[in-house]
Amino acid sequence: MMMNALVLQSDFGLEDGAVSAMKGVAHNVSKVIPIFDNTHDIPPFDIWAGSYRLWQTVNYWPAGTVFVSVVDPGVGSDRKSVVVKTKANQYIVTPDNGTLTHIAENIGIEAIREIDEKVNRLPTSGASHTFHGRDIYAYTGARLAAGVITFTEVGQELAVDNIVHLPYFSPKVVEQSIHGTIDILDVRFGNLWTNISRELFLSLDIQYGDKIEVKILHESRKVYSNIIAFERSFAAIHVGEPLLYVNSLDNMAIAINQGSFAKAYNIGTGTSWQIMIRKVE
């Protein structure tokens, strides 16, 4: 029987045994199932970050891969537990709480099914309703990855249009200025990753070395305003200087060479953090 990879992400951290318990459940389904971690350092309860980290990673895994994403502040509520099949023929097992926003916007969802907990719930989980990551998502994800169940055996089909979406702002050009959002941080280094694509940015006829005016607003309050250079890499500027560059997802990003831009200016992420960039003539 062909085994597909099972890739786990959560906001659980690694300080206790929660992630290990999820892997144990998966190994009880199949001792040879290949299990990998995406990240377990999603900020607690940050559904937006969970949504982004899925999109950041999914494209680099083969068709058939099963992702389990558990950022679930509403565990035990009436939010649905689902499995979606993406248009790239991968599967995501998750609460339907907004975690699928970036996948829906950037990859596309072909079908969604609600997990039937009468069939797809760890038999030894008892009456617990606070660890669905272990009892429902890891168990269902492992069964799907190992071929114990098919996608149609997950549960009843739901309407794709009814998937829960977080507010999402698409970048746009307004009078030679591009308006976008700070989608996420390159956390370890404090760089700002925007949702502005390289293609959209280059539509302003910009070359490496050009000076770019950058404004960052949080809920209409100006947080940052400066003119910085668009450069190919950090080697083009001095330590401590800011730059605009193309990140690993082919989107525009802002950094301080060997410093944290986010900490320097206390900048967060999400649609309430707007960025405007334009070429300085």
Rank of each mutant, 00 (worst) to 15 (best):
I206L: 06
E117T: 14
D186F: 12
A255M: 07
V280Q: 10
V58C: 00
T65W: 09
V187W: 15
Y224Q: 04
S170L: 14
F230M: 05
L158V: 13
A159Q: 12
V25Q: 10
R198S: 10
I196V: 11
I206D: 01
D183H: 08
H129K: 14
P95C: 04
K23F: 07
E281C: 10
V164E: 10
N251M: 15
I178R: 03
I182C: 01
P167T: 09
T181H: 14
R143M: 14
K215M: 08
L14Q: 02
F230P: 01
L202F: 13
T130A: 00
Q56Y: 14
L144W: 08
L100M: 14
V66G: 02
A63D: 12
S77Q: 15
N59K: 14
G13D: 12
R232M: 12
I47S: 00
V174W: 06
L166V: 10
G24V: 06
H129G: 15
D41K: 11
V58D: 00
Y52H: 10
G17H: 06
T124F: 11
W55S: 00
E241Y: 15
K279H: 15
I254M: 08
V32E: 15
D250M: 06
G180Q: 06
A142D: 01
S225L: 12
I107S: 01
W273V: 00
I92P: 00
I277N: 03
L249A: 04
A26V: 11
P167I: 12
E153A: 09
I103L: 07
D16N: 07
V84Q: 03
T271H: 05
P62R: 13
H132S: 05
G74F: 08
G270N: 03
A111H: 05
R221M: 05
V239S: 14
A145F: 03
S10R: 01
P167A: 11
I228T: 10
L217D: 13
G268A: 09
D186Q: 08
Q9S: 04
P73R: 11
L200K: 04
G147D: 00
V75K: 01
S30I: 06
E241G: 02
A26N: 03
N251Y: 12
D96P: 08
N4D: 11
G74V: 06
G108I: 05
I228L: 07
R278I: 10
G17N: 01
S225W: 11
T124H: 10
M276L: 08
P167C: 07
M22G: 00
E105D: 08
A138N: 02
F67N: 00
H27V: 13
E175I: 07
P43A: 03
F169N: 05
I92W: 02
A111I: 05
R143H: 10
S272Y: 14
F201V: 06
I163T: 01
M276D: 04
L122G: 00
S77Y: 15
V71N: 02
I237N: 01
S260L: 14
S197M: 05
V7Y: 04
F189Y: 12
S220P: 05
K279T: 09
R278S: 12
T86V: 09
G98E: 00
D46W: 06
L185N: 02
G76S: 03
E219W: 09
I47M: 01
E175W: 14
L8D: 02
